[in-house]
Design a binder for these strands. Structure first.
Lengths: 219, 219
DNA sequence: GCGCTATGTAAACGATTGCTGACTTGCCAA
DNA sequence: TTGGCAAGTCAGCAATCGTTTACATAGCGC
């Protein structure tokens, strides 16, 4: 009690009927109905899912807006265009990846990737990975994506103790490409046993694969 | 002379002007102008390229028809719909893959894949691989694709001498997914050095990767 | 309380999409 | 030579796309 604002059930009454508040941009906590930051967030979340799942072209702004529970026109208001929204999604993923992918060591990479592919938060991580290969044809978006991938591979190169020359970076990029390919095939087809393999099933093969690919070698 | 038909320059004269014949479905040899089989072939080739490069949704029937030098309406005549054309492309790739991917052995797989990714006919092979993960949302197309992938992985399992149980097949499918991922990232981004790595650069890492992933193991 | 501005809504715009029907026209058989 | 039919052309359909515009309204400063 004592809050400055009574948080009783909010209800909108319109000529078309009565429906509960929060359909548009309400936080789960019930605070604030007209909040630009919150709507932006909702749009970004919905867009990320749609772009990752359907691809840039197949994902329509109307679908995204509906998923977010937001009016379509707000996409253009907050992100200028569909491409702007896509770029914002990519930038967001870049930030998260930069923060969450801390300093890893080679022996933890397979387990880490297996967790990203089939772990408890696989859905989010898979969305992140898939976004990285969804192309919009837009130059700016393309540049952002390449930069994210480049940095990601760079980190893996360092983590694996590979020499930071072309050969070493190539190996890290191959590992990254392989991971994304696995994520994509798991997500987009019903290919068994790959599609429903659990984390435990993946760790073994992935360990073999990544250690062979990225274990530092001399000469 | 004495040919049954004078093959002089063919010219169409229409109310809109005069333009040379063969714009539509003429073979390079100059034979036959109105040939349903040839037009089908041209459409399939163009569609395969477009679908692989741009994805199902982004590839428009008008683009495909223009690439093929053929009237748009013929797509619907010969393939019923855009989805029908896509299914026909997938089926074609399935046939080719079934024929060209003969009996391989484990030690030749890395070199073989490296050749497909960066060899002399990389463009065709890459188109084949990319088509396998382009989704149309159509159920029938989805079924065709999964079947192709399933068979492909099955062949790799046998070639590698892996046990045909879930664990073995999973490893083959992982190798397949990794290959496709590499192909996709090479094709869709300017990520260096991966994007322009040659066949020689790829054989080494791929060999490490695939032997570790697919070398038969006991216990 | 009042008015201004940020936020959200509704409706429509032109462009583009896949597709169709009515039509020409080349080509082979009789 | 000439019908008949397959092959190809053309114009336009309805639907959907991304986007814009004009309008309502909530919420905060005064």
């Amino acid at each position: 009690m004592g809050g400055p604002r009574a948080k009783s059930t909010i209800v909108y009454v319109t000529p078309d009927g009565v429906y509960p508040g929060g359909v548009t941009s309400e936080d789960a906590t019930g605070v604030r109905r007209r909040d630009a930051a919150a709507t932006r967030r909702l749009l970004l979340e919905a867009a990320r899912r749609r772009f990752a799942a359907d691809g840039y072209t197949a994902a329509t702004v109307r679908d995204i807006a509906t998923d977010a529970g937001v009016n379509v026109a707000l996409i253009n208001r907050y992100f200028t265009s569909k491409e702007g929204l896509f770029e914002a999604c990519l930038a967001g993923v870049g930030d998260e990846l930069g923060r969450t992918v801390g300093d890893v060591t080679l022996d933890r990479i397979p387990h880490d990737i297996a967790a990203r592919l089939a772990g408890p938060h696989a859905a989010q991580h898979r969305t992140q990975l898939l976004l990285l290969l969804r192309s919009s044809g837009d130059e700016k978006a393309e540049a952002i994506r390449v930069e994210i991938l480049r940095r990601f591979a760079e980190k893996m190169t360092a983590a694996a103790g590979l020499r930071p020359d072309d050969a070493g970076i190539l190996r890290a990029q191959l590992a990254l490409a392989a991971s994304i390919g696995i994520a994509l095939l798991r997500a987009s087809t019903a290919l068994e046993p790959l599609a429903s393999a659990g984390q435990d099933d993946l760790v073994g093969p992935l360990t073999d694969m990544f250690t062979a690919l990225m274990a530092p070698r001399d000469a």
